[in-house]
Amino acid sequence: MVCGDLPAERDYMNIRKQKEREELNRLSEYAFKVIDTKGRKRSIIPCEIRTDFERDRDRIIHSKSFRRLKHKTQVFISPETDHNRTRLTHTLEVSQISRSIARALKVNEDLTEAIALGHDLGHTPFGHSGEQVLNEICPFEFRHNIQSVRVVERIENDGRGLNLTHEVIDGIKNHCHGFKPSTLEGEIVFFSDKIAYINHDIDDAVRFGVLKEKDIPGIFTEVLGNTNSQRINTMIMDIIKNSLHKDKIKMSDEIYKATMGLRKFLFENVYHSKMAIEEGNKGKAIVKRLYDYYTKHPEKMPTDFYKRVESDGLSRSVCDYVACMSDIFAINTYKELFIPSTIWGM
């Protein structure tokens, strides 16, 4: 018996098309429909059961760069606790917030999720400290959102990239201030990223003793809420109320002002705190030393990075390699290269 001749098998083969048709009926008129995608740079055979955006989500989750996020700093470098946020847990929180908003607004949840899961793949070891020092020492501008695009297009899969759809790459590139996503789904991730880090960074700062809850100005807590959960809920609900049946994702003026004020408070009291600066400088020193070393000894890099020196240039290839490192790998590599080993029996 040939399985392809069974009615159930033929139904199985149509699952993706059923999903695509269902989107047309279920999603908002402002949602991006998967059938309208501009596609990939390299054509592939369509999946039998997954839409293109579901496939992108899976490609991101199964990538090496996604797995490395579990050992990359969010704010606090290599803390001795199980409960701090890492770049991976931040990404998952952004994904959860994004999906909640997307589902409520009836826009494309699969596209939103794929963008959210991929938005920070280009982050360096030691968080924004690593990003800052690479931007200082590289002969080109280094920004983690642009590097995230480079990861999915040039670095992953032994240089072949993940071959994601245009809309997912657009959302990944444009999730930062100063950039504009082309889809509502990308705009949702833009806001969700801020909602996530503003609130979980406060939570981590309190846990590490950098802040106390009472330090948060009342002008913000009176508007947003007194707890992490309340503030997240306020921000999410405000976006939904002000974006429903509209072609733009936005907050009310009151909530946006309070949110940005809380963000400024974080920069002044957490990100630029003495503890954060001291630890960040240590991370910067490691990144700079590794960059200098591999610039002088590019043959010491893994083959897939070294072989691109000729096509991409020495600085670009070294930058890619160092930026891909996790905190743990960068620290261990630094120790191996620059810290003398203990010699027993001397």
Rank of each mutant, 00 (worst) to 15 (best):
C3Y: 15
G4K: 13
G4M: 08
L6R: 09
D11Y: 09
R16I: 10
Q18V: 11
R26Y: 15
V34W: 00
I44T: 10
I44W: 08
E48H: 05
R57L: 15
R57F: 03
I60K: 03
I60F: 01
T73C: 13
T86M: 07
T91A: 11
E93H: 13
E93C: 08
R99M: 14
R99G: 11
A104M: 06
A116K: 06
A116F: 06
G130E: 11
N135T: 08
F140R: 13
Q147D: 13
V168P: 03
P181Y: 05
P181N: 11
T183W: 02
K194C: 04
I202F: 00
V210P: 01
P217D: 10
G218T: 04
V223E: 04
T227V: 01
I236N: 03
M237I: 00
N242E: 15
S243T: 10
H245Q: 12
K250N: 10
S252Y: 05
S252Q: 09
M260T: 14
G261M: 06
R263D: 14
N269V: 01
N269P: 08
N269W: 01
M275G: 01
G283Q: 07
Y291D: 06
Y294K: 04
K300T: 03
Y306D: 07
S311C: 02
G313V: 07
G313A: 09
V318M: 13
V318F: 02
D320V: 00
C324Q: 09
S326N: 09
N332K: 15
Y334K: 06
E336Y: 02
S341W: 03
S341R: 11
